[in-house]
Simulated scan of single mutants.
Amino acid sequence: MRRILTGTAADPSVVMLTTFDLDQYVYAALAAGASGFLLKDVSPEHMVAAVRLVRTGDALLAPAITRRLVERFARRDSTPAIPRDLSALTARELEVLRLLAEGLNNAELADRLTVSEATVKTHVAHILAKLGLRDRVQAVVLAYQTGLVNPTTPE
């Protein structure tokens, strides 16, 4: 994958598809620039939806992986927040970041904030740029790492 992603603006979006449900593969793929990580048991419909989603600039992880990732960072209460300055974000951008961490997509964000999807995309782009992040997955991880949001126990 590193050969595919060279760090240029013309890089393709990559969705990793694997049978290995191991965290080290997820982290390596994300570190190398993957925009998605799915397990091979994904349905064809979900695979097509994932490719379309990543093509629009979004990112995704298989639900089981997302759950483990959130649980892992939730247990790191004693770890100091990473040195990212969230004060660079406006109040609205912080609100968008919180909602991103809840897993809302652009349409759901637009509905919740009573704005257009184009406005949501602009907010997300500003968040990523201001915080030096590659994609929404990194933004969600950062939201948990910094304590902006905390995991809740499902009811």
Rank of each mutant, 00 (worst) to 15 (best):
L133A: 09
M16R: 04
K40N: 10
V26C: 11
L128P: 09
F20P: 08
L5N: 06
R84V: 12
L61M: 02
D23W: 14
F73P: 00
R55Q: 15
L99T: 03
A129N: 15
A59Q: 06
L17H: 08
A88N: 08
A64N: 13
R2N: 10
A110I: 02
T152E: 09
E108S: 08
G57Q: 07
G147D: 09
A143I: 00
A62R: 07
F20G: 10
L100Y: 02
V51I: 14
V26W: 09
T114S: 09
T119H: 13
M1R: 09
L89E: 08
A9R: 11
T19E: 06
R2L: 01
P63A: 02
K40A: 05
A91S: 11
R52W: 04
R136L: 00
G132D: 11
L94T: 10
R72M: 06
A129V: 02
D23I: 00
A9K: 10
D23E: 14
I4M: 03
A129H: 14
S87E: 11
V120A: 02
T153P: 12
T90G: 13
I4G: 03
A62N: 12
V70G: 01
R68H: 12
Q145C: 07
D111N: 11
E45I: 08
I65S: 03
K40H: 06
P80V: 00
I65H: 03
G103K: 07
A59R: 05
L109P: 14
S116P: 14
E117I: 13
E45L: 08
T119K: 11
T114V: 06
T66Y: 10
Q138G: 15
E155N: 07
P83M: 03
N106D: 10
L109I: 01
H123C: 06
L53W: 13
A31W: 07
L148T: 10
V70I: 07
L100M: 12
R75H: 07
V120K: 05
I82V: 13
R52S: 09
R55E: 15
L142M: 06
A81M: 04
M47R: 13
I4F: 00
Q138F: 07
A139Q: 12
F20S: 13
Q145I: 02
L142K: 12
R55S: 15
E95W: 02
T119M: 05
A88I: 05
H126M: 09
S87P: 12
V120M: 01
